[in-house]
Write a protein that binds this DNA or RNA. Structure first.
Lengths: 83, 83
DNA sequence: GTGTATTTGTTCGTATGTATC
DNA sequence: CGATACATACGAACAAATACA
């Protein structure tokens, strides 16, 4: 079971990057394997206290890194998009 | 001198992507050479009628593609960030 | 089959912060 | 100092895809 997602508002590192870093760790550590779903954006909003906009920005970072793919109406998944 | 930036609101292609595509063309075509400044974000807002948020998102696309770099307080420049 | 809820996607407007000139 | 320019973050609205009772 995933550990709590948190951000430190006093850190000079932007919130979206802090969240992106944590999500990246979950994936590269194998805690969330390929094809497995990440927490929904709403859930990340709840856990972090960030706004939806900021959470989406964090996820977009991983999208561009190719670490996750998204399916509208479904969720965010680890690994490469499957055919 | 750069041609007018425009977006078609009836297109299914998102506005931020339309703008990003146009800016990319300006760079890859050499119309804006390495080290040269792109129009300021405010200027892009004026020319396109988009919101600042959307314009910034478009520029972020090019940033992640490594086609431009930004200098806060200065502007957006074509090419790789200089050492 | 028809809603209803959930989830991601796009866009806007605003506020505030930081850097440069 | 004041004006300009990019950076981060929020909240809201609406759309579209998906899932499910």
């Amino acid at each position: 079971m995933p550990r709590h997602l948190t951000v430190d508002f006093r850190s000079p590192t932007p919130s979206y990057r802090q969240l992106a870093d944590q999500l990246r760790d979950l994936i590269t550590s194998g805690e969330i394997g390929p094809g497995e779903a990440l927490p929904s954006l709403n859930r990340m909003v709840q856990e972090t206290g960030l706004s939806m906009s900021t959470v989406q920005r964090a996820v977009r970072v991983l999208l561009e890194e190719g670490l996750v793919y998204t399916v509208p109406g479904r969720g965010v998944y680890a690994g490469p998009r499957k055919p």
